[in-house]
Computed example of a mutant assay.
Amino acid sequence: MNVLIVFTHPNHQSLSYAFLEGVLRGCEENHAIQDVQVLDLYGEHFNPVLEFGEKKKRRDMDKDPELEKYRDQLSWAEKIIFIYPIWWGRPPAMLMGYIDKMFASGFAYKDHGKLLPEGLLKGKSVVCISVMKGPTFYPLYWLNNAHKVLMRKALFQYVGIKKVKFFEFGNMENAKGKHQQKINKVYTYFKNVVTIA
């Protein structure tokens, strides 16, 4: 199993980075995982801004040579892991910019004039690991589960990815947030997962 980790946080001393380390530790101890690549969007200085106009068309983004390396990573990966904080009820703009650029028509999906397109990333699975200051129930009851709906339905199902798992941790700026217990939960999952499910 090939695993791509897309890490989105500017601080390597952050709790998000501690979750990245837990994931890597679990992957290293899992014989079902052959290879792991980490894409640190801030460390990579990824440009999340969509830029197109008369000469550079959005419909040609699937052929943009500047994004070829990242397309290759997504094509190679069987399991894609996103690690990020929840800011203002949603993933950071850096991650949304990556999604805007990478999940492009012609690469991630193809329109056939029907209600829904053909997803071109079928057979892959996704795990979203997110942390937030507020309580875990906050996005579910106060925001109508907007984060999970956005990621699962508006994005991943649209491009053909049906297997999506969430680890959504709240109260993470609280000293009693059980940080290590939650990191261990993620570590154990990746240590034991044996399929792309």
Rank of each mutant, 00 (worst) to 15 (best):
D72Q: 14
D64F: 15
P65C: 10
D60M: 06
E21Q: 12
L95W: 03
M61R: 10
P48Q: 02
I83Y: 00
I83E: 01
D72N: 13
Q73M: 09
M61E: 04
L95I: 05
M94F: 01
R90S: 11
D62P: 02
D35V: 03
R58K: 10
P48W: 04
R59E: 07
E44L: 03
Y42R: 04
G43R: 12
A93R: 02
K57Q: 05
E28P: 00
N30E: 05
L20W: 07
L41S: 06
L24S: 04
G26H: 14
Y98T: 05
G26E: 08
K55G: 06
E54C: 14
G22F: 04
F46M: 03
P91T: 00
K63D: 06
G53R: 14
Q73A: 11
A18W: 08
K69H: 10
E28F: 01
L24A: 06
D35L: 08
D72P: 10
K57F: 12
G26N: 07
A77V: 04
Y17C: 13
F52K: 12
V49T: 14
R59G: 06
M61D: 02
D35A: 13
P91Y: 00
I80T: 10
K79F: 00
E29S: 14
L67G: 13
E21M: 05
S16R: 02
D72M: 08
F46G: 02
A18V: 11
V38A: 03
Y98I: 11
R90W: 07
S16E: 02
S16C: 06
E66K: 10
K79I: 00
Y17I: 13
N30F: 14
G43D: 11
P91Q: 00
C27N: 11
E44I: 01
Q73I: 03
E28Y: 04
F46H: 01
F46R: 01
M61W: 12
M61A: 03
E66I: 07
Y42M: 06
N30R: 09
Y70L: 15
K57L: 09
F19W: 04
A18T: 13
L15M: 08
D62N: 15
E51Y: 04
Q34D: 12
L20M: 05
W87F: 09
Y42S: 04
Y84D: 01
C27D: 10
W76P: 08
Y70E: 13
C27E: 10
P92H: 08
D35Q: 13
V49Q: 13
Y70T: 14
P85I: 10
K57D: 09
R90K: 13
L39E: 09
Y17H: 15
Y84Q: 02
S16V: 04
L95N: 02
L95P: 01
E21F: 08
S16N: 08
Y70M: 15
I86M: 15
M96W: 02
D35I: 05
F19R: 01
A32P: 13
Y98N: 06
E28A: 08
R71Y: 15
Y84T: 01
Q37L: 09
F46K: 00
K56M: 11
N47D: 06
A93N: 07
Q34G: 09
F82Y: 12
Y98K: 09
R59P: 02
Q37K: 14
I80W: 07
E21L: 03
A18F: 10
L50E: 09
I33Y: 06
D62V: 11
